[in-house]
């Protein structure tokens, strides 16, 4: 699964331009899915028939899109001014290497040398509107020859194993989630299950709104990355969650109050299968579950997350063991089929 995650993380697919990752996923599942379809806005839904029907419409969901950038303006000197796709802290954008568009043009987000900064500028990150990408062109004409306004860009792919069983890469949020779902689709399942690979989570859970409306699932479980605050100088009471402590379950976040019975069901299944899990201890953030919960007549929702450090940056950090536990938990849930959840 880790090799699949590496391949998925290398795709250039920010919100609204998910073609590349979607093609990869389709390539992986087409010989295993019972049926699949892509809707008008690019969401991919997959149906896998199980050994029997459970009477429930179960949906597992992950989002295909990643945060990124869009070229807004090409200056006379050939520099590319840009805007953000999704929410990114300016302090992880400054000075980064990026890759632009289908031609994969390399660029550098320029950073004013420390020697040129005025005293009151020092240490303060400039706003995104004052940043620009340097691709090595010296005028507007030559730059316009390689890129155009509206082209998308992402942090340069950089997947790597490091430390003791950790992985760092751009876009682990939420390519790992996609990889987990793909693994499950490849297996024989006891009950009929739907899988959704949605678009545009990062700009407002849009894909999930669309899929929720069409599919109308009874139960939706979202697989996501969630911010782990277990870094130096952070107080333990405010970690939210930690690496190497298993899947993160949540009772509430900024967008959803999760179905209490469903949460208990998932905890029970985890305990019965000796899968260590943790409960997120900070009320913050949001994900596609808020969209599913409120679509149509409503859906019971839960989220299973991978604790991820430095989320929404060029270097998401996760522990391999956590990702494997999530796959195990997901598989155990499908075995039980959410009967009497």
């Amino acid at each position: 699964m880790i090799k699949t995650i590496e391949r998925y993380c290398a795709c250039i697919s920010p919100s609204g331009s998910e073609d590349e990752i979607r093609e990869q996923i389709i390539g992986d599942i087409k010989n295993h899915a019972t049926s699949w379809e892509v809707d008008e806005t690019g969401n991919l839904t997959v149906f896998k028939k199980g050994a029997k029907a459970s009477g429930l419409k179960i949906l597992f969901s992950a989002h295909m899109d990643e945060i990124g950038f869009m070229i807004k303006y090409i200056s006379d000197e050939g520099y590319l001014y840009f805007d953000l796709i999704g929410g990114i802290d300016r302090r992880v954008v400054a000075g980064r290497r990026v890759v632009i568009g289908g031609n994969r043009i390399t660029g550098v987000i320029a950073s004013k040398a420390i020697h040129l900064q005025k005293p009151d500028e020092k240490g303060i990150c400039v706003p995104i509107s004052e940043m620009y990408i340097d691709i090595g062109c010296t005028d507007k004409e030559s730059a316009s020859g390689c890129v155009s306004v509206g082209d998308i860009a992402v942090f340069k792919p950089n997947f790597e194993h490091f430390g003791d069983g950790l992985i760092k890469s751009k876009a682990i949020d939420d390519r790992f989630g996609c990889a987990v779902l793909v693994e499950l689709i490849k297996r024989e399942l006891p009950y009929d299950t739907y899988f959704a690979f949605v678009t545009c989570e990062e700009v407002g859970t849009d894909g999930a709104k669309q899929v929720g409306y069409r599919l109308k699932p009874d139960i939706a479980v979202v697989f996501e990355s969630t911010t782990a605050g277990d870094i130096a100088d952070a107080p333990k009471s405010r970690y939210a969650c930690s690496l190497r402590s298993g899947p993160v379950l949540s009772h509430m976040d900024g967008g959803t109050i999760y179905d209490k019975a469903l949460l208990q069901y998932i905890k029970n299944v985890a305990e019965e299968n000796n899968i260590e899990y943790q409960i997120k201890n900070v009320i913050a953030g949001g994900n596609d579950s808020s969209a599913y919960q409120k679509s149509g007549i409503g859906t019971r929702v839960a989220v299973i997350s991978a604790p991820t450090r430095y989320i929404h940056s060029a270097n998401n950090v996760v522990a391999e063991t956590d990702l494997e536990s999530i796959r195990e938990l997901a598989s155990a849930l499908l075995e039980r089929g959410f009967i009497n959840a």
Partner: peptide
């Protein structure tokens, strides 16, 4: 923040500079 470095200890290992999550 969130950039990569190499640490030249007894052997060379990769490191990532931290970036504070929004909730902190």
């Amino acid at each position: 923040s969130a950039s990569e470095v190499l640490i030249y200890g007894k052997r060379t290992i990769t490191g990532v500079f931290t970036s504070k999550p929004p909730h902190l």
